[in-house]
Simulated assay, not measured.
Amino acid sequence: MSSLGSIKSFHALQQQWKRKVVVVVMGATGTGKSKLAIELAQRFDGEVINCDKIQVHKGMDIVTNKVSEDESMGIPHHLLSFVDPLRDFPPQDFVMHGTPIIHRLITNGKLPIVAGGSTSFIQALLKESKANYEFYGIWIDVSLPVLYPILSARVDEMVSRGAVEEVREFYDTYGDATSGVAQAIGVPELRKYFKSEATLRECMDEMKINTWMLSGRQRQKITALSEDLGGLTERVDATRFATERSPNAWKVSVLDPSIEIVNKFLMNEVRQGPA
């Protein structure tokens, strides 16, 4: 289905049943969930609500791997870079800020797409909002043995883009702070380098190991979260794309199945609706 066709289909279904549909794109770090959320938003006239508990904070764009303006493809992103760097942002704050955005988007005929790997945020949103909205989850997954080298390469790429200088500026400003964005992988590790407690290579190796561990924990929590959605979630295996890194592999193994999932969700719900 074309992009225009997907948009028309979504709008027609939304108007027919006055539905309040929210799509949740979740996955471990480095699996491509931000890319998928953006491309789904393009096809279904949606906007993205960030659900990464570190990316809500201002600053540290490289270390936290925030979506750049070019990468966003003109799709509005909400709850991104708006919290003071050292302020904690618990799940209840995410619900407090996110629920009005979901309501506004749906009122304006947009599809809210909640995207991120912070399962505590998603769980809190489901607990307080499940009665008011129809949630459907897409879990983009990559085999961990394939994902680990990708995450290692991403650390190298972050450093080449200026991650060390970014964290040094943060350290010079906030010292040994441990709250807010200071919890991002890269901040405590590179702090050892600034204090001459470890070499840069040692710090980078530690960043890689900690990122691997994070991805494993996220994968376990997302598995449990999919059960909380009561079966209203589908896993998309992005391992082929992660291996080949080609546009065709992305389209065939990730994007097309995800578009089909969203369309199927909408159409299945219509068939279950009132006569």
Rank of each mutant, 00 (worst) to 15 (best):
R217K: 14
S196N: 15
T223K: 10
F194N: 07
Y193S: 14
N248I: 09
G180E: 07
Q183K: 15
R245H: 05
R191G: 04
S179V: 13
P188K: 03
R191Y: 02
K251E: 14
G216Q: 12
R245T: 03
E197R: 14
M213D: 12
D228I: 04
G180T: 11
Q183V: 12
G231R: 10
T199G: 06
M213C: 07
D205E: 13
G180A: 03
L190G: 10
E206F: 08
P247D: 06
L232N: 10
R201L: 14
I209A: 12
K208G: 09
L232R: 07
P188M: 13
G231T: 11
V187R: 03
R201D: 15
E234G: 01
Y193I: 08
V181C: 13
E202Y: 05
S179W: 09
R201P: 12
A224H: 08
G186R: 15
K208A: 04
E202I: 12
R191Q: 03
L214M: 11
V181Q: 09
A182I: 12
G230C: 15
I209C: 06
E202C: 00
E234W: 00
G186T: 15
S246D: 02
T223R: 03
S196E: 13
Q218F: 02
E206T: 04
E197L: 11
T233A: 14
T239D: 07
E197I: 04
T239F: 10
G216A: 05
W250D: 00
K221H: 02
V252L: 03
K251M: 00
K192C: 02
A184N: 01
E244T: 03
R201Q: 15
F194E: 06
Q220L: 01
W250L: 06
A184C: 04
D237V: 04
